[in-house]
Each structure stands twice: as C-alpha cells, then as structure tokens.
Write a protein that binds this DNA or RNA. Structure first.
Length: 430
RNA sequence: GCGGGUGUAGCUCAGUUGGUUAGAGCGUCGGUUUGUGGUACCGAAUGUCGCCAGUUCGAAUCUGGUCACCCGCCCCA
C-alpha cells in the first residue's frame, strides 16, 4: 500500500513543540498588552459568504486569490483578513455595541496566492481595530499605532525591534490634485510610489505615466521632503500637518521608533488616510511584519450608518514563523518545559505514582508520568533526559514501601530519597 | 499565470567522463550490568535514486515530457 504524504500542503504551517511554545509565548504576551489596554476579543467565523468577501463577480479571477467553494447554491470562502468580517459584524450588531469600539482578533486567515518566504496560504494575524460612528478623530490612529508598538515591544526580547513607517494617502490625493493628474494617472502613480524602493527606474516609469515635469515634482517629495510642498494648496497643507501632528502625538505617548515615509501606501484600496507599516530592524529583508490605517467607508456595503475604522494587524506567522525558518530566533529558553518526569517501575506501583503526580501538579510543578511500566528503566530515564526534565522522580517497590520518592537531579546526577513534601520543596528551589 | 532552481534513507546531503550488490552524517531501534540518562563502543532496519518515456550492452548520472517543492515576479480586493 502506498503511504500518503506527511507534508502539509504548500504554504501551510505546522510547528514543532518547542517552536509552538515560542509562538504561544509571544502571542500571549501580545494579547496581554491588548487586554490591559481594554480591547475586546472577537472570534469571528473563518468562512464568510463569497459576496461578503468580494465585490467582484468574476469568480474565476478571484478564485485564484482566495479559497472559495460552494455548498448547494451558497458560494462561500475563507476569510483573507480580519477587516471584512469585522465590518459585517459591527454593521450587524450596531444596537448592541458601544462606540468607539475597541476590538482585537487573533485568527487564521487564508489566501490562495502562491506561497513564498514569509507569505503563506494559511497564517495567523492579530488584528486590532477601533470603530466609530460617523467620525473618528485622528487621535485614534495614534492610539492604534502606539498599542501595536507596545505589542511588538512585549516580544522584542524574542524578535528584536521594529521601526514604524508612516504615510498618508491624503497627502498623495492632495498632491495629485495639485499636479492635475487624471484618475487613471493617479492610480498608476499610487502603485509606482508604493514600489519606489523596489524598482530601479522610478522617475522614468513615472514619466511614462504623468510626463517628465510632474514626475520630477513627485520625485522631489523624496529628495526635498514632503514639507517642501507646504503653502501650495489647502489640502496639501492639512495633510502635511496631519502627519506632523501624528508624529508629535506618538512621541508624547513614548513612541520613538516612528518616522514619516510618504512612500508607504498599503495595498488595500479601502484605506483613506494615515497608513503605516512595521518593519523588523534586525531582518530588513522581511516584508512588512504589520501595518494598517484608516478606512472611512468599508462598512458601507453592510449598513447605511457610516462606520469609520482605524485598524492594523500584526502578521504573526510572518514575524515568528519566518524568523524561525531563518533560524533567527533562539529557542533554547523554550526547550525545558517539564520540571519532573515521574518514572514508574512495575505496574503495581502506578497508583502510588499517579497520586504523587497529582500532588506535584497541585503544587504547581510541571510533572509528567512515564506509564509504560514494562519498559526498561534505561528507556525511562532516557525519556526524562530527552524531554529536558530538571528532575526524575523514580518510583519502584522500595520507594512505595517507604512512602517516599527517589528524586534525581538530571543536571548533576545527584539523587536522594525523600518524602513527597520534601521532594516538592527541592523541586521548587530553582 | 510567468521566469529560475531543486527532486537520492525519517532529516541534511554525497554519488567521479554513464559501469557490477546505492553511500555518509544525524535520527530511530537493539546491544555493551534487566534500578540510572547525557559521552563512548558494537550492531540492525529503512530507498521503485519524484514519475513516464527515450538513447545505450548498461541510466541515480544523458535527452524529452510530467508532477511536486523552493526562490523570484504578477497579485495582495
């Protein structure tokens, strides 16, 4: 009989126990930040109606980008980010929610695109959003960035530091208006500016779209700074001061690793204002490890009430799994989760041993029993060694008759026979 | 969808200008005191050499096709 494949599908991730412990440690630290900050956890369905996920009606085209399928007449698909489901959720529960609403989600998302390093088809994302009705001050954008920054800070001992790059879509809208670009030209210019640091002939490519003079004006934003366009038009002025005020607010919240980079655009077209991306300082070759921005109109397809959001997400898989794959994370501190391996010799001693396991666990000690009592003792102690247990508690006929345990320190090999209470004391002294 | 690369043991990979029974390290299992691990020593198991066809007396090796994976592009609503 042919054996079936053991590898998961391409682009899907599974971790070894030590990696998973690191992953869980990091995500729980980040969620601690969110809980302390008062955000509400939402756990939304992984599957949505296809019409919720996309406005496009070209099934073939979107099928290449999303996981879509059909049951009966219902077309549905796996969510590709947290924002769409959140918009639907908020629009559907307007009467039960209080705004501004602070939310977070920690969930798997799915994309059908071809996988690459740091780009998976199934990945964890931590989304944080603040939603308001009718309007939401720019101060909330800063709150989101500051909270995101704290989340990264909470795991900086594992993954290093991040830098925050902040852009503003309003700036470019004002700029294109000032330059008199058509809608098509604006759209193409958006894409080019977004890719500015990736492509070689930026000005040439831009010249093809908008002509040499305007291309040079756009390039001068990068050469002379965005502030050189002050006092041109009212909307330019306001978008520029919006960025400056934003940075000042972040500074006053203790965020020092943020800078304006007007080439930051973000792919999602629903963003309308301030946008930002987070990059790893130590591993700049990694794509953005998080980002977000403001979306004024996303829920318009679900509700006539205007719902405004500012939100961001941490690409948890990209950040952690990609770094683990590149062997950039020191996993040694996650290697020894077990305090005591309880080894049992003889089936007739199992009850006594399990009682001790229970006492150890009640005392807050991580204890696991080795219950194949017919295995040779050598195998048992080897197991204790391999799982990195700090101690082995050995239980055979002698120990049971004396109502004690033989406690062996696996690091130095010292062994003594103790009462359970004394064993607990010894184990607890780290 | 496009371009490039790689497919040999559970894993990482060797494998000479095509030549007999296919190799190493690590891991696994067993043994070197049946109540004592890490180190050391001895031994064992495991491969349709990704798949199909072709060239050849002979293919892991050369050619074509195909599939899978990796890297990059497109895309990122």
């Amino acid at each position: 009989m042919d054996l079936k494949p053991t590898k998961p599908l391409s682009g899907f991730i599974e971790l070894l126990p030590v990696q998973q412990r690191c992953f869980d440690y990091c995500t729980s630290r980040m969620m601690d930040v969110l809980r302390r900050s008062g955000y509400n956890r939402l756990d939304l369905p992984a599957i949505e109606r296809a019409e919720v996920l996309t406005d496009k009606d070209n099934w073939d085209e979107i099928e290449t980008q999303m996981f879509l399928f059909q049951k009966g007449d219902t077309k549905m698909g796996l969510r590709y980010d947290g924002t769409v489901g959140l918009s639907r959720y908020v629009a559907g529960h307007l009467n039960d929610l209080t705004f501004p609403l602070y939310t977070y989600q920690f969930a798997r998302n799915y994309r059908g695109e071809r996988p690459q390093r740091g780009r998976y088809r199934e990945f964890w994302q931590m989304d944080i959003d603040i939603l308001g009705l009718q309007s939401l001050s720019t101060n909330y954008d800063a709150e989101i960035v500051a909270t995101l920054s704290k989340m990264y800070e909470s795991i900086s001992d594992i993954v290093g530091n991040v830098i925050i790059k902040i852009g503003n879509r309003k700036f470019w809208n004002a700029m294109f208006e000032y330059l008199g670009l058509s809608e098509d030209q604006s759209r193409e210019a958006f894409v080019l500016i977004d890719k500015r640091d990736k492509i070689s002939g930026f000005v040439d490519a831009l010249t093809d779209v908008v002509g040499a003079q305007k291309a040079n004006e756009i390039e001068s934003v990068f050469q002379n700074g965005y502030r050189s366009f002050l006092n041109k038009t009212e909307s330019l002025d306001s978008s520029i001061s919006e960025m400056d005020e934003f940075i000042n607010l972040l500074n006053s919240m203790g965020i020092k690793n943020a800078e304006i980079d007007v080439s930051i655009m973000r792919g999602h077209s629903y963003y309308t204002g301030i946008v930002y991306e987070f990059f790893s300082v130590n591993y700049p070759e990694l794509p953005a490890v998080g980002g977000g921005g403001r979306y004024e109109n996303l829920a318009s397809k679900f509700s006539k009430t205007k719902i405004v959001g500012v939100g961001a997400s941490v690409g948890v898989s990209r950040l952690l799994v990609a770094l683990m794959e590149m062997a950039k994370i020191d996993l040694s501190r996650f290697e020894n989760p077990v305090d005591v391996a309880v080894l049992v010799m003889g089936d007739n001693n199992v009850a006594y041993a399990m009682n001790i396991v229970s006492q150890l666990r009640d005392a807050g000690i991580v204890a696991i029993p080795y219950l194949d009592t017919d295995k040779k003792f050598k195998n048992q102690i080897e197991y204790a060694d391999k799982i990195g247990a700090r101690f082995a508690a050995i239980i055979g006929d002698d120990e049971v008759s004396k109502n004690q345990v033989a406690l062996k320190n696996m690091e130095n090999g010292n062994q003594e026979t103790l009462s359970v209470a004394d064993a607990i004391k010894t184990i607890k002294v780290k």
